[in-house]
Amino acid sequence: MNKYSWLIALTLSSLSASIQAEEHLRLATTTSTQDSGLLEVLHPALEAELQVKIDVIAVGSGKALKLGENGDIDVLLVHDPAAEEKFIAAGFGVERQPVMHNDFVLLGPATDPAGVKQSDNLADAMKKIAGTSSFFISRGDESGTHQKELQLWRAAGVEPAGKWYLAVGQGMGAVLKIANDKLAYTLADRGTYLAFRDKIELVIVFAGIPELFNPYHVILVNPEKHPHVKYDLAKRYADFIRGKEGQKIIREFKIGGEQLFYPDVLTQ
């Protein structure tokens, strides 16, 4: 073996991959799974096993569900339970099943000007943010994270409006950068936060309670509504990520030594 043999092998394998008439599976998922880097680990194994190319459309959960409604995609991996249930009830999707969960974290500047760290509970934390002049950056894009955030404000009895509340309508990564630059508070999923941790100076000011859990479900687009969707392939995708190997990859996926997602099917 010389030092170029791996290159030749790689070229050959990519050639053979492109020679086979590849099938494409379109997955709509949230920016959080994409930004964390999980899919980059999960999908190669899956693509090899299923002989399929997975096209990932990473958007907010709201938009992802809309794509499913229109039949633009075959399968969803999302985290917005309320909207998901509506989606199923309306008959757009079938076989909604849990895959994994991570949790949301409240982030803020290291100096914590609002004193969120000393909060007794989540509602108290949210009230403290709203009660100071510190900015709060909201996704404002109807994503799962945005929905969760709105739910937290409701639970705390705070109207999220005013000069302190900045809705930027962008993905999690962009929101983290803006919050970082404006020394603001924000709500993020742990995965994206860990992926960005080295690039920003925000710290976790409140986290680790069940109210901040963030469950991901896989949903197949209803083939009765959209006969052209690749139902069988989608089903195999769901089986894989809920199967032994998929769940193992999810559990072992770490950023900076920290586990990001917790498998919901196999817990060992």
């Binding site: 958007v59 709201g62 569900l65 404002g140 894009d141 109807e142 809705a167 309508g169 962009a174 803006i178």
Partner: peptide
């Protein structure tokens, strides 16, 4: 600008945002 609602949200950034929101 960061597309901040009511502050730096312009026609072009809003168009980019609203589409990704499904609006």
């Amino acid at each position: 600008g960061g597309n901040i609602h009511g502050f730096t949200r312009t026609m072009t950034t809003a168009i980019a945002l609203e589409t990704s929101k499904g609006e």
